[in-house]
């Protein structure tokens, strides 16, 4: 299927429901308002039709994250450590104020960890982190299966080729003119607009 999928920001959605009318697979019409990724073919028609700009197209493959110098990473790790220690002190104190401090320090620690390399769950560093835990569980009751499952579900993305450098090609439906963009037209692809079969598509040069 396509190399993007549609997501809906429920805070922006004004229930004009155009996405329901234009979606060729019914992916946009769900009981919990979350677009069904397994049905979404990434055609982007809902996103263009939405009058409130509540639907955006998210790429399936994310680019590797920006690299940070070793010195920056070391400085950030030192602050991560300090914020975690502050969180630990606050979590040992009673009262609402201490609880607010505990939460604040955790949010800061998360943000610092993000810039210290752990921005994407797809990154090599995040995968290394999980692999080490799986190979060497820190205790008997460590939820090892959970870490293994994440590794299976989220592919690693730190390859040598940046997605932006991949060759994006176009295929046009010879019946209605719909254009599919991606690296490769998936086999068995059916035109989301007019339902013309795979064979009716021709690559545009």
């Amino acid at each position: 299927m396509g190399d993007k999928y549609a997501v809906r920001n429920i805070r922006l959605c004004t229930k004009d429901c155009l996405c329901l009318y234009v979606c060729p697979t019914g992916a946009a019409d769900t009981e919990n308002s979350i677009i069904d990724i397994s049905k979404c073919i990434g055609c982007g028609i809902c996103s263009q039709a939405c009058p409130s700009g509540a639907i955006s197209m998210v790429p399936k493959e994310l680019p590797p994250q920006q690299k940070h110098s070793e010195k920056v990473t070391a400085a950030l790790n030192a602050l991560l450590s300090s914020k975690s220690e502050q969180e630990n002190i606050a979590s040992g104190l009673s009262g609402i104020f201490a609880y607010a401090v505990e939460k604040s320090c955790r949010i800061q620690a998360e943000d610092i960890a993000r810039e210290a390399g752990y921005m994407l769950p797809q990154s090599h560093i995040a995968h290394e982190f999980l692999r080490k835990l799986v190979n060497n569980p820190p205790s008997e009751d460590f939820p090892k299966e959970t870490a293994e499952k994440i590794l299976q579900m989220i592919p690693e993305n730190d390859s040598d080729v940046l997605p932006g450098e991949k060759t994006i090609k176009k295929w046009k439906c010879s019946v209605c003119g719909y254009v599919y963009e991606g690296e490769k037209l998936p086999e068995g692809f059916v035109c989301p607009v007019c339902k013309a079969p795979y064979e009716k598509f021709t690559e545009q040069k």
Partner: peptide, 15 residues
Amino acid sequence: TALEMSAVCSNLARG
């Protein structure tokens, strides 16, 4: 530390 790893994980949950 365990708490730092907790922050790494809760940050990845946000990701």
